[in-house]
Write a protein that binds this DNA or RNA. Structure first.
Lengths: 206, 206, 206, 206
DNA sequence: AATGAATGAGGATTCATTCAT
DNA sequence: TATGAATGAATCCTCATTCAT
């Protein structure tokens, strides 16, 4: 039985793409290399020709995903001058990312992050690079006196990403409508107003 | 060899208690009924006499856990008059709960919530009841005009619990110090100041 | 499908016995737990209920075998006074052992001995105890001046057991007749005469 | 990407040479054609172009090895007049051969000899030719009355080669020192003295 | 009520070998 | 001639669950 003959790059790309879909559908534990092979029209052995283990394949999936996410993020980052606008832009972006692939997010959170080696992983750096943009923005705001200095920025980061993750899962379970706009606006407002130094800025909300 | 003969209630209680410990140690996937049986000094068959499946046993664990959490929460709720104080109390309580059993929290998040049936589950109701206290508090504040009305309270809830969970996991991985105080204060401040209507209330922070 | 229900000891005994036969037939690499299970009328899982790995099962086979061999050896050891007679008895015994289970011998030599941990193994001690009887006998003879002192007894041991192994394999391949008597007599004569001090002892060899 | 284009003879020679090294390193079971191909800088398919199966390739390795061994043996055979000297020379040579490639020796013993077809194999003839020199020497000695006639020469052969092999493996496992001299002297002495017809010849030992 | 023996259905990974280009 | 992609057939092991006693 001869499947289509592809060049390695194409095969790898196909495998990674199909893996992402499958992973998003069933999660790490129920991701079966056999099913992936079936979907790609190849044998399981072919999967193992390109990836030494299931784990490494799925790490690759995560890396590629982050890479894409990061590439798509950059253009817009400098577009916005003002802190509120930039924060809003970043939050919106994060919401869209998580919303489009909530299972991937959860996979990274559940399978990759608990690994003791996680911090020496490319994923860790990629993830850091992503959330780091948000952290940097807020640190800047603190440095310039625009934000108060009484809450750790890492906690703010966790409020943002934790909220997004929880919202996304409620959405997946069809419990809420999870409007990207509402979520983005809400998070941004709370964080901004909650941290803003000066007098209340009623420009922003509403 | 006959094991110790216990009354059903005691047996169930023992199984659930040991299950909670084990679940907290290893998580859902690596929770082996055989290991539970070993720890309780009974046979695997005895486990299955009281619980039809591993899943249902662990659902029961979650239910009992929530029950306890809720019972312990109540006394303090009415103790605090003022919105900021009550919010602070609730957040602190949530931080302590999650911190003491982060694996249980994640288990509920990962295994129970994704289930399509989740919303018709006792867990769902219990969870609702717990987070509902926070939601109710905030809804009240909105109703009384103390909080603005431009952010959904469910989003606020997710900011709070999402932040706590992310913080707890970073702590588990020894990435952050996760002071209960800092986390509680930070979250409360941001949410309160971010939602407070009227002029800035500098009493609160610091 | 219910197989016969046995007590653990019986089941283990049956498994070990069938394993010995199967191992003797096909050798370590082609020993399939699945085939063993089939022969015993149980599932593979049952095999793994009693033995954590294929390797440990087969180590157990070797241990039991050595144990039996050693038990059967002892009665006759003291029966013979004189060095030649005792050596002859021991060599004959070794020939019979190897002849009855040449594959087991080879398995121990090929699979178990190359293991870096071999020397800290029960098999090693058992094997040592067995060949040790021969070594002790010869060492004695050297000490009493009956044997010369110009050849290491370990080398003598290897001449004896090496010869037996090679003979047994030629026999297995039907290349030689491998008469137990001839082999025993031959080895004993060469070693005895080759090591005997003093004037030639023509009593012994014919 | 085209690999270097070699004449068939060169390619075969290169494959056989690399195979010998690899086989000596890892043994038959863990000899992977893929690894061989890697070491030779060719594709796996190229290996299969020249050898129909892994087995036949490794048979060829054994054949070439024996050929070399035999060629290197011959010059010295006639050099020694006297039986003891010739035996000593042959044993020494065998010790060196086995010592230099114990894995190859075992491979032949384990993989090739058990094959039912072995006796119609070139290896069989080659091996025969090699050990045959020793056998012939001893047969001669018997014929001339220098050796007794009460032990089969094939058994003597097995005592010699069996001893060497066992010594070599103990050495590989770092259990003995395996001095070439000691082993050679020991084996030669025992066999010679054990078989010598006349009065004890104390010239020899020491 | 309790158990100890038993298992069905996977499930990730390996490797000698093939064949279209 | 040479290859690079592809694979079929294993292979060891796991675990939630059942059932006769």
């Amino acid at each position: 039985m001869t499947g289509v003959r592809l060049k390695p790059d194409q095969r790898v790309a196909g495998l990674v793409a199909a893996s992402r879909t499958l992973l998003a559908e069933v999660g790490y534990e129920r991701f079966l290399p056999a099913e992936l092979a079936r979907r790609c029209g190849v044998s399981e052995a072919t999967v193992y020709r390109y990836f030494p283990t299931k784990r490494e394949l799925l790490v690759r999936v995560a890396e590629d995903w982050f890479e894409e996410v990061f590439v798509a993020l950059e253009p817009g980052v400098t577009e916005h001058e003002d802190t509120y606008e930039r924060l809003h832009y970043l939050v919106r972006y994060a919401v869209e990312v998580v919303r489009s692939e909530p299972t991937l997010t959860r996979y990274i959170f559940n399978e990759l992050r608990p690994d003791p080696e996680f911090r020496s992983t490319a994923i860790y750096r990629l993830n850091r690079r992503f959330t780091g943009v948000v952290v940097a923005l807020m640190r800047d705001a603190v440095a310039r006196g625009e934000f108060r200095n009484d809450v750790r920025v890492e906690l703010l980061r966790d409020m943002i990403f934790g909220a997004i993750e929880h919202q996304a899962w409620a959405y997946l379970r069809s419990e809420g409508d999870f409007s990207t706009e509402d979520t983005t606006d809400g998070i941004t407002r709370v964080v901004y107003r909650g941290m803003a130094a000066g007098p209340p800025d009623d420009r922003r909300p509403r």
